[in-house]
């Protein structure tokens, strides 16, 4: 009698368990190759902004930068990357290998506002999505899903174009940003314009031997580094809720490029975002 009952309970439990476990066993190959995205939209190409919050003393950051680099290789101009050096691991030391200061006022302000280095580095934002929840901070392995997800929706409501005029002699740059309202937008929108620089060779801590030498890569190449914000931290207004949008709007910025920056490796990055949700609607990048 007892045996029968135990058997019954055990069997029913095992059956319920088997049903519930419903485990997906994946067989090799575990991956699918994806090819470089060469599709071109006839007009108004959707682009996505990836911000990699990093620091030269962050040992896991080269690994994250590699993910951003791989995504950029695959998505080309559709992906705009900014490497924001901010937080404790980005600090410059008074002496030693990490005396360079790559922090910026805008980067520090964004890092504090989005709470990224408080959570840890490396981490990032994709189009600054989900700011209204605690899920806006994305770990590097989560970047690809969100980048592909944003690009899958090809609808563009606001488009951006950059026209740079740079004089190498006096280092004066005029950057003209054209904001095109493809569809009417009844929201407060701001435009942020920043300068980024690639190809900066400077020491970086690293603990992943697959990515480079450990513990310090002395000739590490820092790319997409945020250098300055031409519009200030939170940008300039381009649309106001309750006000009709023009078809296009042009914003001009005059800027002197710092002597310390290599202008040949500098780019202007512009992005437009919803002031209420902080979500980026479109981004664009153009070399000087």
């Amino acid at each position: 009698m007892i045996f029968k009952r135990i058997l019954q309970y055990s069997l029913s439990m095992a059956a319920a368990g088997a049903l519930m476990v419903s485990c997906d066993k994946i067989e090799e190959p575990f991956t699918e190759k994806i090819t470089v995205d060469t599709t071109i939209q006839t007009s108004h190409t959707k682009r996505v902004l990836l911000e990699d919050y990093t620091g030269h003393q962050c040992v896991n950051c080269p690994e994250a930068a590699l993910i951003a680099h791989d995504l950029k290789n695959l998505k080309g101009d559709k992906l705009v990357v900014i490497a924001v050096h901010a937080g404790w691991f980005a600090k410059a030391t008074p002496a030693g290998d990490f005396t360079a200061d790559y922090t910026t006022d805008a980067g520090d302000a964004w890092d504090a506002f989005f709470g990224i280095s408080n959570v840890g580095n490396p981490n990032g934002l994709v189009n600054r999505k989900y700011f209204t929840t605690s899920e806006h901070i994305l770990s590097p392995p989560a970047w690809s899903t969100e980048v592909l997800n944003v690009l899958a929706d090809t609808v563009v409501t606001v488009d951006l174009k950059i026209n740079n005029n740079y004089n190498a002699e006096n280092r004066l740059l005029n950057s003209e940003i054209t904001v095109e309202f493809v569809k009417p937008v009844d929201k407060d929108l701001n435009l942020i314009v920043v300068l980024t620089e690639s190809g900066i060779v400077s020491p970086q801590k690293n603990n992943n031997a697959e990515v480079g030498v450990t513990p310090i890569i002395y000739d590490y190449v820092h790319n997409h580094m945020l250098r300055d914000a031409l519009t200030g931290t939170w940008g300039v207004e381009v649309a106001k809720a309750g006000t009709a949008n023009p078809a296009t709007l042009k914003k001009n910025f005059n800027y002197t490029v710092n002597q310390a920056f290599n202008a040949d490796n500098c780019s202007i990055v512009a992005f437009v975002y919803d002031v209420a949700t902080k979500e980026v609607l479109q981004a664009v990048e153009k070399q000087l």
Partner: peptide, 9 residues
């Protein structure tokens, strides 16, 4: 869609 090894999902 998690990207690994440069070009594999």
């Amino acid at each position: 869609d998690i990207l690994v090894n440069g070009n594999e999902i």
